Simulated scan of single mutants.
Amino acid sequence: MRLGLALRAFWQAMFDREVAERVALALDGVDLASSSSAKSVPAAVEQAPAKPVRQAPTQSDAIALLGALQRDGRLVDLIHENLDQYGDDQVGAAARPCLKQCRQTLDRLLAIKPLVDAENGGVIPVEADASSARLRWVGEASGASQGKVVHGGWVATQVQLPAWSGGPEDAMVIAPTQVEAP
């Protein structure tokens, strides 16, 4: 397909000056959609060619959040630890501070709140057109206008993930390797 397009562009540019100018602008990265008409294209040729816009490297929000949970609570360390070698009391003792720190981190970054103001077992009204992202029936619903809360759900009321300024090669790093002098 690209070969056919290239040949077509070549032949049309060869015999039509306007097409040649538009091809040149497109190759230089000039946005042709912003031009009001094909007649205005030749005037744009006289302008300096647009410099390519360089995007700053980005890191996935998921990696940023996981990195914060690892840094503050060592969550990834706990999850990847071989827990079979420890008793339940040891696992619980290790998990408690990790979970406490992770909760503080989530509250700070996402301000997590209950989705509904009702205790488990409480009855709440259910709109017929309720969003499936906000409400999920467990078992048979049969068009009921009320439902018993099995789990209240959670909602983030903000997203304030840490800013990241690394290079593209580091975008997937969750936590750096820590070293000390021997």
Rank of each mutant, 00 (worst) to 15 (best):
L5K: 15
A13N: 03
P97I: 02
A9L: 15
A130W: 01
D170K: 07
L99W: 01
V30Q: 11
V159W: 09
Y86P: 02
P176F: 13
R71M: 07
Q85R: 14
A26P: 00
A43D: 10
T58Q: 15
P97D: 00
S36P: 05
G153W: 03
W154S: 06
L109F: 02
H80Y: 15
A62M: 11
D117A: 12
L25W: 02
T177D: 14
A111Y: 05
P162V: 10
E140H: 13
L109R: 02
D117R: 08
V76A: 11
V91G: 01
P176I: 07
L66D: 03
L3G: 05
P42I: 01
D117S: 08
D72M: 06
D107P: 06
R54C: 00
P57A: 12
G87R: 03
G4K: 10
V76I: 11
A156T: 05
I174D: 03
Q12D: 12
S60C: 00
S34R: 14
L106Y: 00
E119L: 09
S34I: 10
W137E: 03
P97W: 00
S36Y: 04
V41F: 08
W154R: 09
A48W: 04
E81T: 15
A68K: 05
M14E: 12
A133W: 00
Q146A: 08
R108N: 04
V159A: 15
V123T: 11
P57I: 07
T177K: 08
Q47E: 12
P182A: 12
R134K: 04
A94Y: 02
P49R: 02
Q85H: 11
P176G: 15
R103F: 00
A156V: 06
L135N: 03
A118I: 07
A64K: 15
A24M: 09
A130E: 00
S60L: 07
Q160P: 01
R136N: 06
D61T: 05
S34C: 09
V123A: 13
G29N: 03
R17F: 06
Q70L: 11
V173M: 13
L3R: 13
A48F: 03
D31V: 06
V76P: 03
V123S: 01
A181W: 11
L66P: 06
D28R: 15
V30A: 15
L135D: 07
I79Y: 11
A68I: 03
L106G: 01
A144N: 07
S165H: 09
S131A: 14
A93I: 05
L83C: 11
D170T: 07
Y86D: 02
I63N: 09
V155A: 09
A13W: 10
T105P: 00
R103E: 13
A64C: 09
T177Q: 14
V23K: 04
E119G: 05
V173Y: 11
A94T: 08
V149M: 06
D84T: 04
E18A: 13
G167K: 08
N82C: 04
V41L: 10
N82M: 05
G121C: 01
V149A: 11
G73R: 03
A141H: 14
A26M: 08
G152D: 02
T105W: 04
A175S: 15
D72A: 12
K113G: 03
